[in-house]
Amino acid sequence: MAVVKFIELSAQSPQSYEDAIRQAVETASATLRNIQSVWVKEFEAVVENDRISQFRVNVKLSFLIEGSGAGAG
């Protein structure tokens, strides 16, 4: 039986929402293994001087708990 854990993260980028999502996954992958999916829960933008200065996302990541995959235990 596989067991998947979910965590929520927030990330931002001055370039785009897509880049903010990418940064969330890349940063999480530095300490997590077996990331399975990313779900974007919220989009937000910071406006300064009538222009968007930051793109923010709140995401939910899922990752497989080690030892819980097919054939484990």
Rank of each mutant, 00 (worst) to 15 (best):
F6L: 09
D19L: 06
Y17C: 06
K5S: 15
E42H: 08
G69V: 11
I21D: 11
I35G: 08
L32D: 06
E18N: 14
V38L: 03
R56W: 12
S37R: 12
E42Q: 11
A30Q: 15
E42N: 07
A28Y: 04
G73W: 12
A11R: 01
E8Y: 03
K5R: 15
R56M: 04
S16D: 10
V46N: 12
N49P: 01
F43S: 04
F6K: 11
A11M: 03
S53A: 12
S13L: 05
S13C: 03
N34I: 01
A70P: 02
A45G: 09
G67T: 03
K60N: 14
Q23P: 01
N49L: 07
R22F: 14
R56P: 01
A70V: 07
A20D: 04
V40Y: 04
P14V: 11
D50G: 07
Q23G: 03
S16Q: 09
S29C: 13
G71D: 04
E66Q: 13
A30T: 14
T31S: 14
S37L: 02
A24Q: 10
V47A: 13
A72D: 13
E42I: 03
A72E: 07
A70T: 06
S62A: 08
N49F: 03
S37K: 04
S62E: 01
I21S: 07
N34Y: 11
A30V: 02
I21L: 09
S37V: 02
V4I: 13
V3R: 09
V46T: 05
V59S: 09
S68A: 10
D19N: 14
G67F: 05
V47K: 05
G69K: 08
A2T: 10
A72F: 05
G73S: 14
G73Q: 14
G73H: 11
V3M: 04
I65H: 09
V46Q: 15
S16A: 08
Q36C: 01
E8R: 04
D19S: 01
E8G: 00
I7C: 03
V47W: 07
Q15L: 11
F55D: 05
V47S: 14
V57K: 06
G71Y: 09
A2V: 12
